[in-house]
Design a protein around this nucleic acid. Sequence first.
DNA 1: ATTACTGTCCTATGACACTAGGACAGTGGA
DNA 2: TCCACTGTCCTAGTGTCATAGGACAGTAAT
Lengths: 138, 138
Amino acid sequence: MIFQIDFQAGKPVYLQLADQIRYAAASGRLREGDPLPALRPLAEELRVNRNTIAKAYSELEAQGIIETVPGKGFFLKGTATPFSQQERNRLLIAEIDEAVVMAHHLQIDRAAFLKTVEERADHFELKPAQASNDNPRR
Amino acid sequence: MIFQIDFQAGKPVYLQLADQIRYAAASGRLREGDPLPALRPLAEELRVNRNTIAKAYSELEAQGIIETVPGKGFFLKGTATPFSQQERNRLLIAEIDEAVVMAHHLQIDRAAFLKTVEERADHFELKPAQASNDNPRR
DNA sequence: ATTACTGTCCTATGACACTAGGACAGTGGA
DNA sequence: TCCACTGTCCTAGTGTCATAGGACAGTAAT
């Protein structure tokens, strides 16, 4: 799996990397148990400092997306989220509100908005209900 | 209308103000033609520099949400957005993707996600299709 | 014409974020 | 046991960002 850094993007390198990993996990390109590249090799490949990689990984660890195994490295974590149900709802509603407000200001009506949301949910293959107690790759 | 600044929020003051205005406009609490407070009185009220207010207003102006009338001040702009249809779609899809990725990582399934999106669209009374050629307040 | 408002431009300062290098401790494999 | 890997902690430098004050020009109302 290849990560790409755009030094002209005006976005911090560690956030670009963290976002690419988050999106890869959401889209299934990275799955539970997959190893992430170690800090030093990836730092050399992307020509940044290994602490920059570590900072990106630290962000993802805080969000419960990856975990570290001493002596072995970082791995994609299973589905347990560190947040309570209430906190998860709060976080999601804040993000959805941002999208709705943006739709309003971009003159995108309700029907077009909901249609686009469904398309993107399908694009990412967002899990249907009650599939989460499966254990697909163990 | 009252804006509130939280100096402990860790979020720039100008962004807090800009977001509150954006959300007020999306929810109908601020409407096309409504005047915004002038820079100096609002700066005194919020106890910040008037350039901080100006910076918030400048952000909103760039997004086509407010406009300036020389000698009179800033006003909520009508519905014309400065972005092309293609650019609007791109912006919206990026924001929706962020919400979908977040739903994935928060173990919120597709049905619950879509339900929450509809609720929030209704909460903001996102415009139904083809109402946008109306001219409600002139 | 004058005054008081309006927004805008310029310069400056301090804090913070981003990035980096050195060094250390733990783990696994040979 | 040793070596090469792993991640982590500490300190430091730089550039950017957020915020601020001074001053100016334009407009509207009197």
